[in-house]
């Protein structure tokens, strides 16, 4: 029997992989992929908590997370297409008008 901690640690490791990718990659597509990895890590922790607490709330919440991830991907990629049309680049460091 695998304890709850293992699932949580796997989820944390997956989340930090996503954080690493988001902070270090230059390409906007890869940053979006990192966000998907982070959302999946959160889903994994929600489902494992639901299993170990004998509940279903975690699974319902994970479904909502998937819905939000789908809309986030659609909007983000549409923004990426608009950006690419105007700038012909998908590198984050060449889009620095806001000086953020």
């Amino acid at each position: 029997m695998v304890p709850l901690q293992w699932y949580i640690w796997l989820s944390v490791a997956l989340f930090t992989t996503g954080v690493f990718g988001f902070l270090t990659r230059r390409s906007i597509i890869m940053m979006f992929l990192s966000i998907e990895v982070m959302l999946n890590a959160v889903n994994l922790s929600l489902v494992s908590f639901a299993h170990f607490l004998n509940g279903l709330r975690g699974q319902v919440l994970a479904l909502f997370v998937i819905a939000v991830a789908a809309s986030e991907a659609a909007i983000g990629l549409a923004i990426l297409i608009a950006l690419f049309r105007n700038r012909a680049t998908a590198q984050i460091e060449e889009v620095t008008e806001m000086k953020g």
Binding site: V12, V19, A88
Partner: peptide, 26 residues
């Protein structure tokens, strides 16, 4: 998108040690 252009140049930004330390700390 134009994938050829995408694959040129550096993969990681200059601040990658910063990113890796933030991830490890988290």
């Amino acid at each position: 998108l134009n994938i050829k252009e995408e694959m040129e140049g550096e993969r990681f930004s200059v601040g990658w040690p910063f990113g890796i330390s933030i991830a490890a700390g988290l």
